[in-house]
Simulated assay, not measured.
Amino acid sequence: MTDWLASDVAVVTGGASGNGREISCTLAEYGADVVVADLRMEPREGGQPTTELIESEYGQRAEFVECDVTDSEDLQRTFDAAETLGGVSILVNNAGITENRDFLDETEADFDRIIDINVKAPFFASQLAAERMIDADHDGRIVNIASISGIAGRGNGVVYSASKGALRLMTYALSASLGPRGIRVNDVSPGVIETSMTRNDLEMFDSGAAEEYATTTPIGRVGTPNDVANAVLYLVSPLAGFVNGETLVVDGGATNSWGGIAGED
């Protein structure tokens, strides 16, 4: 296996389950030590905690930090944990929440919660990471996990679409701000990915919505966490050394093909 990331320390928010778990393990597979920041250590889908899996399967160092990404002290503790491993050089802002709600039923509390987690938290996590990357003179990389709902609006998730659109534009602005300081910033925008969130919280598979989505993709299926993790791996690897301020859409072609829809990551 290529040790593309052998000198890197990655922080993955929401790294205990779903896409974040797969991202954490994939980065470890390619040589990174990983700080998994999440509200709970146990993966929602079951199995070994992600940090234990990283250590046993890939032989990399891993630390778990119980972290509410909207809490500045928790974020500080997360990056302090990265310092014990050598200092953050990769940040994946993966933690996020979604919704399936009619616009007329949205409340101010709904709005604030989604924006706080999906926009405000990545902003300040990126700021803390960038400060440390610059101080340590690291070749820094930040990847935000956005969504195709931030490209094509979704009527039953207006606040969610607004938050992911904001995150995508934040990515571009950060790339302009941090690129001259040696930090590349990109985003991955998934379509429907089969995770506990889409299966259990949104009930997309029981309702048939996921199957309907699959018919809109030229590839004819929904995505997997591995699809998202491989996209992140590319963006933080040496292969993407001249890629900055870009959106990598991982949706099987649904958004840009005839009959494409705005799905849910």
Rank of each mutant, 00 (worst) to 15 (best):
T98Q: 07
S196W: 09
V65C: 14
A121H: 02
A37I: 01
C67L: 12
V236K: 15
T215E: 08
F64I: 14
A209Q: 11
G220N: 10
A173C: 10
Q48L: 03
P49K: 04
R113D: 03
D227T: 07
D102H: 00
A37L: 08
F79W: 02
W4V: 14
V11N: 06
A121D: 03
D139L: 09
A82D: 06
A209T: 05
R181V: 08
E212K: 03
D102N: 04
L85G: 08
D251H: 08
Q48N: 06
Y58V: 02
E246G: 05
N256C: 14
R154A: 00
F64D: 08
E55L: 06
L104F: 04
V119T: 01
I54M: 04
I97L: 06
F64Q: 06
A28I: 02
L75S: 08
V36S: 04
V69E: 01
E108G: 02
A32M: 13
M197N: 14
T216V: 01
V36A: 06
I117M: 02
N200L: 14
E211H: 03
G86D: 10
T13K: 04
R199L: 08
N226D: 14
A136C: 14
L178W: 00
D139Q: 13
V192A: 13
P122I: 11
G96R: 00
D187W: 03
T13R: 05
L104N: 10
V222G: 07
G241T: 09
F123R: 03
T2W: 12
M170V: 13
T215G: 12
V9A: 11
P122G: 05
I151C: 02
D80T: 14
N230F: 05
F64M: 07
E212P: 01
S175Q: 09
A130C: 07
M1D: 15
G140Q: 10
L104E: 13
P218D: 12
P180K: 12
V250Y: 07
G153H: 03
P49Y: 02
A32Y: 04
G208S: 06
Y213L: 07
L5W: 04
G223K: 14
R44T: 07
A82N: 10
L104D: 12
V35M: 13
L167C: 06
L85F: 07
S189N: 06
L128R: 12
A129T: 09
E22V: 10
E45W: 08
N230A: 13
Q48R: 04
N244P: 06
T247H: 05
E55R: 11
N226H: 09
G96T: 06
Q127F: 02
V35A: 13
L128P: 01
Q127T: 05
E212W: 00
K120M: 09
T255S: 12
A162R: 03
R181T: 09
A229F: 01
S7I: 07
N186E: 07
A146F: 08
N256T: 08
S17V: 04
G46F: 08
E211P: 02
I219Q: 14
E108L: 02
I134P: 02
G241M: 11
G182S: 10
A28E: 15
A254D: 03
L169M: 13
R181N: 15
D187V: 11
G263F: 10
T107F: 00
F64K: 01
D8Q: 13
S72H: 03
V143F: 12
D68Y: 15
A152S: 07
A209N: 04
E29N: 12
I219N: 08
D8A: 15
G208T: 11
P225D: 10
G179F: 05
V158H: 01
D74H: 15
A240S: 10
E55I: 10
E52L: 00
